[in-house]
Amino acid sequence: MEERLGLRMGLAASLLMLLMLFLFARVPLAAGGQEASSGDAAKAKAADAKEGASLFRANCSPCHGLGARGGGRGPDLTSGRWTHGSSDDEIFRTISQGVPGTEMPANAFEDSEILALVAYLRSLQPLSQALVAGNAGKGRKVFENAGCASCHMVNGGGGRLGPDLSRVGASRSVSYLMDSIRNPDKELSAAMSDPNNHYSVTMVYDTVTVVTAGGEKITGVAKNEDTFSVQLMTPSEELRFFLKKDLKEVVHEHKSLMPSYSESVLSQSDLEDLVAYLAALRGVESGNAKEAK
């Protein structure tokens, strides 16, 4: 009995101690409370961004590329440049309503899903790219003199072998443009994909050489391919279609037909001017294409 009483008193004393500790600790705890709640907000944001990432992967990446780094059709969304408005509200509207006159469709997401997508895109912002140092006017001259227009189209004029560059400034980051010129093989540009078929294989601007039964070698950019056939565009812009059963060989070269413009061909300052020109290419508004030329 005595022992038990002692135990109880000991318990009461330690409870009292705890209470006092709590009372003394209240002030600093309260001050720390705000930190805790902003920590929660950050966690919620991170959770949103995570949900946004998976929504993005499933719905947006076929055009905008994995990690939002730009695909064959949709802009790079890590560049820090927002052609159709940079506020959360504007990005929300762009996602929900699409952009008339472009290939960006309206999307039937829940509001919470769009907010998650915005949170995800915001989480990518630290990756934004360096500013362009060059002169766009000079860059235009470089573009003409270096023969770029023989393979690339800008606003309806130019070649067809390589990607159309009319909107490349809106769709690609500066560092991607630099890489593409200096080392075109580093990452082959994505080509046509079906925006409504998320399961299709993304075609890239790969060089493919086929050898016909007669031994003729034909090289071109693959426009499409499946198990039974391959469709090429040759450097002379001819479309050549082949059934694989008629071919001796199909070689995927995993490199671009574009020559690499090393520093001995294109100086660093010319490169910067050229990239400044490309970065300014944002396409022309629908309906004014002719007037704008």
Binding site: V99, M104, A106, N224, S229, Q231
Partner: peptide, 18 residues
């Protein structure tokens, strides 16, 4: 499309107003 195989060479879609 490649008329013999049905494989697409390119696709275009107009973004129409509501």
């Amino acid at each position: 499309i490649d008329a013999r195989t049905g494989r697409a060479i390119w696709r275009y879609q107009r973004n129409l107003p509501d």
